[in-house]
Design a protein around this nucleic acid. Structure first.
Lengths: 218, 218
DNA sequence: GTAACCTGTTTTGCATACAGCCCAAGTGCC
DNA sequence: GGCACTTGGGCTGTATGCAAAACAGGTTAC
């Protein structure tokens, strides 16, 4: 009963294209040519379009009738809103999850943390994905499915801002140190972990705000 | 510059099927046969599947690989979570929207309210859709796109519970009286409207909780 | 010079067609 | 009789092909 996950093409394409958008391979504002991308990936348009439909729901692309899909641009007001929402939802949910987590959940969180560490040290691509996996491992055991879904969306949305503005500064290194203490408190089922998460998010948003305003000066 | 809205088939199908699910035409637990439904609606599977993909994101259907889509069942814990989320997000957002609303927004809110009244009196189908439109008209001018999107999802999710458990009791009649005072305060840009919205949601969740527990006694 | 219009090309959106999976009823084997 | 196995029909998921919309470029009218 290990996770033998059967997924259809659309599912896989969602992850693939999402990563391309988040890591900047497909830059904001760029139209997505369906036939071209489909043949590049060796699939047809049908599953590709289903994947794009989902990415549109996630807020990474927009579509206009008969004009197709375009990678959404970054907007500082969106970043502000996303972080405001995370502040409203995430601390409480992480605390709840800490209480509810069973052994398997806890094991997953530990593993996600280790993988994130490893990825950060190598500093190859995909740190963001590991970061998301880690955070969600702290959230999902809350048992609040809808909240978890929303938070997953918010993490996806915030990732482009972090990658663009904070990763280049090596800020994620510091963030990872915080992750360690958060995980520890979470494993201790200490509900004060919520405060820590709150502080973690607040720091990020402050750093981000500084970078965004710095940039808009230009 | 009137809203000449061009929509593709998938878009229209989303609304159509959503209504069918919300009004119970397609009951929870029922599998959705793609070929059958497509030919019934006079379209092919392609746009239908894209519509179902979106409805899955909305939480109205689930899919399993090679086993297709099934209308999601109602769960009282989902209802609790959805209303908890609405309480966290909606009052504040409505108050913000009251401040930010321009004349067009205000006109839309008034119109949505009138249409809701009319629909309630006739008490034909689709009261729920008008109810949703009204509430969203009070939310959207907040300028918080992501929050608005989340709240729209939450309204869609909560609708089935309201329709199943509260509408039969004529409870929506009372709710509509509250809508009038909410709209008035909103138009007055009185941020205390948030408190009213909060009370409105709380009442609903209390009524709903009573009905749900009453039913689980059986 | 500019604006409206035409025309070929690109691209989307959808219908049709088909391969493969799932499930249930039947079949053989013990 | 009960259990593994097979086989057929139904359904999903994907590829291919086509109609129609959008775009770009040049051309004409003013």
């Amino acid at each position: 009963m290990a996770g033998i996950i059967v997924r259809n093409l659309s599912d896989q394409l969602v992850d693939l294209i999402r990563e391309r958008i988040l890591d900047g391979t497909v830059p904001p504002g760029q139209p997505i040519r369906q036939d071209a991308l489909a043949s590049e990936l060796g699939v047809s348009k049908i599953p590709l379009r289903e994947a794009l439909t989902r990415l549109e729901q996630e807020g990474l692309v927009t579509s206009q009738v008969n004009r197709g899909y375009v990678v959404r641009s970054l907007r500082s007001d969106e970043a502000e809103e996303v972080y405001a929402l995370r502040l409203k939802l995430e601390p409480e949910t992480v605390a709840l999850a800490a209480i509810h987590a069973n052994d398997a959940d806890r094991q997953q969180a530990i593993q996600a943390s280790q993988e994130l560490d490893a990825a950060t040290n190598v500093h190859g691509a995909g740190v963001g994905a590991f970061n998301r996996t880690f955070h969600l491992a702290l959230i999902r055991p809350s048992g609040q499915a809808t909240t978890t879904l929303f938070l997953e969306r918010l993490h996806i949305l915030s990732e482009r801002y972090v990658r663009k503005h904070l990763e280049p500064l090596g800020r994620d290194q510091r963030a990872n140190e915080e992750h360690g203490t958060i995980l520890q408190m979470w494993l201790d089922r200490d509900t004060l972990v919520g405060k820590l998460v709150q502080a973690h998010i607040r720091k990020t948003v402050i750093d981000l705000r500084r970078e965004l305003s710095r940039q808009s000066e230009n």
